[in-house]
């Protein structure tokens, strides 16, 4: 048990260290998110009411696209240099190892989006309370994106043109998060409506993904490595 926990930490720290050595990969995702978001006011117009109306959807769609952009790197590097093969042969349960990689991936690609989202709120003239809600739902929703995405990334590992295939596989699966995530932000701008149901549903998605995705991803990796 202790060894397993140790290996979990070692892998998590390794992935963070690798990202630290190659910071550009983290920043590309973040800038992609910001650029997509700043394109919308240019195309749609910058009236206050319009911006407030589209903001929830825009934030979430940008987050979905940014997270799919980051997905093919989740296992691809380890696959190419053989580290993944060694990982599956390590004397630890593979789902636990996969979970460590998912957490590292979220810390590097999901969490930065959460932290930068107040800036988006300013772009779109959102009230402060709504910015708070936006950060909260992104905090609940982005881990789900990483975890569902990991399954698709594992399935398409080593395929030619896998990057596009990942987007096709994974974007439809992101729909529930998109619907309830942006729903929560829109609702928070209406006086008198509660956002609690949205938060509960998003939390439920997260728990569900937490339980199933490490196992599904581990099985998919084994298939991809054959």
């Amino acid at each position: 048990m202790l060894i397993m926990f140790n290996a979990f930490w070692v892998l998590l720290k390794r992935d963070l260290l690798l990202a630290l050595r190659r910071r550009s990969e983290v920043f590309t995702v973040l800038f992609f998110f910001l650029i997509v978001i700043s394109l919308f006011p240019l195309g749609v117009g910058s009236e206050d009411a319009t911006l407030k109306k589209i903001a929830p959807g825009v934030v979430w769609i940008a987050a979905l696209l940014a997270s799919t952009l980051a997905l093919d790197r989740l296992f691809a590097n380890d696959y190419v240099d053989g580290a993944l093969e060694q990982l599956t042969l390590a004397p630890q349960s593979l789902p636990i190892m996969v979970f460590a990689k998912m957490i590292a991936h979220w810390l590097l690609t999901g969490l930065p989006l959460v932290l930068i989202s107040p800036l988006v709120g300013l772009f779109y003239h959102l009230p402060t309370s709504t910015i708070g809600v936006m950060m909260l739902v992104l905090l609940l929703g982005t881990p789900v994106l990483s975890m569902i995405g990991a399954i698709a990334a594992a399935l398409t590992l080593g395929l030619r043109g896998g990057g596009v295939l990942v987007s096709l596989l994974v974007l439809p699966l992101y729909i529930p998060v998109l619907v309830y995530g942006s729903g929560a932000i829109s609702t928070s701008m209406v006086v008198g409506l509660s956002i609690q149901p949205y938060l509960l549903l998003l939390s439920a998605f997260m728990l569900l993904a937490l339980i199933f995705s490490p196992w599904a991803t581990a099985s998919a990796l084994k298939i991809s490595l054959e």
Partner: peptide, 18 residues
């Protein structure tokens, strides 16, 4: 089994950035 096994394949399994 994995505890008793060491496999070294064509790929070195080392990270270039470390």
């Amino acid at each position: 089994y994995h505890r008793d096994l060491l496999y070294l394949g064509h790929l070195n399994g080392i990270k270039a950035d470390l």
